[in-house]
């Protein structure tokens, strides 16, 4: 700051120090370089880009009108199977996740080793995409709904366990202490002290995961793990676009419907 500025007494303020400005400049340059580099490496073919709108329009033209006769023939049964995969998978995942949720909750399980072990199980479950889980189970059980159900179940353990475990950790200490002081055995402290406190979180997690699983199980068929995805895969391979369009519309409708159902239930019970 100059002496003149000081004598006038105008306070000067700048958001960044010169070092910060330099650092931000470098970040901008690096970002620009990375952008150029990535554009070059994905080798966009301009011709494909130019006629994309045309292709899209063409796709929609070929999809419409839908092949409605295909719904009773193949889609309906596959849709029901998708529901079953999602629902059974969710129930199974909750059954498997609950013990680990209790192990993960530091206020319930006072052993850092067990807490860590449970976290490890959650991370393993979450780090593998449900399609990868499905590929794995298709290899073991062969194609079909069993592979899909297990893929959904194993994929959901991490989500359900982590969130429910966190809800357990947030349970108030006071009521727990009161039941312990009354001589209640551990199982009773669990059902009368912890459970009433975490019940809303439990139902909320279960519903949310069911909602997600309906969407996830719709694509599992692409790797042969049952459900509506199998029909989608077949229609795509045969280039029956009027069937593809119908299947996509059905999936869309089902996802919207489950969204409504779950938010309705959630508003009622929580």
């Amino acid at each position: 700051m100059t002496a003149a500025a000081g004598s006038i007494g105008t306070p000067r303020w700048e958001r960044f120090t010169p070092t910060e400005r330099a650092a931000r400049g470098i970040v901008y340059i690096v970002t620009a370089v990375a952008l150029v580099w990535s554009l070059r490496s994905i080798e966009i073919i301009p011709e494909f880009l130019y006629d994309a709108p045309e292709q899209t329009a063409d796709l929609f033209v070929r999809m419409w009108p839908f092949d409605w006769a295909f719904y009773p023939k193949a889609i309906h049964a596959a849709l029901i199977e998708t529901f079953h995969i999602a629902t059974l998978g969710t129930i199974l995942s909750i059954a498997m996740a609950l013990p680990f949720a209790f192990l993960a909750a530091r206020n319930f399980t006072r052993s850092p080793l067990l807490n860590w072990f449970a976290q490890f199980v959650f991370v393993s479950s979450r780090s593998v995409n449900s399609l990868i889980w499905a590929l794995l189970f298709v290899a073991i059980f062969g194609p079909g709904a069993i592979a899909g159900t297990l893929a959904i179940a194993f994929r959901s353990i991490g989500f359900v366990g982590k969130i429910f475990g966190e809800a357990l950790e947030e349970a108030q200490k006071g009521p727990i202490e009161a039941l312990v002081a009354a001589g209640a055995p551990r199982a009773m402290v669990l059902t009368k002290g912890y459970w009433p406190q975490v019940e809303p979180a439990f139902w909320s997690v279960a519903l949310l995961r069911w909602d997600i699983n309906i969407r996830e199980s719709a694509v599992l068929g692409l790797v042969g793990a049952g459900g509506i995805g199998v029909a989608l895969d077949a229609a795509l391979n045969n280039l029956y676009w009027d069937q593809v369009g119908l299947i996509l519309a059905v999936i869309f409708a089902v996802v919207i419907a489950t969204e409504f159902v779950t938010s309705f239930i959630r508003s009622r019970i929580i």
């Binding site: 006071g174 039941l179 002081a181 002290g193 009433p196 406190q197």
Partner: peptide, 24 residues
């Protein structure tokens, strides 16, 4: 034991909170 912050199980009914005294 009676606590400063009452330590009731909030989401249970009054009668069930009383019966919690019998859990032992």
């Amino acid at each position: 034991m009676v606590f400063q912050e009452y330590n009731l199980v909030e989401r249970l009914s009054v009668i069930e909170n009383l019966l919690c005294g019998r859990l032992g």
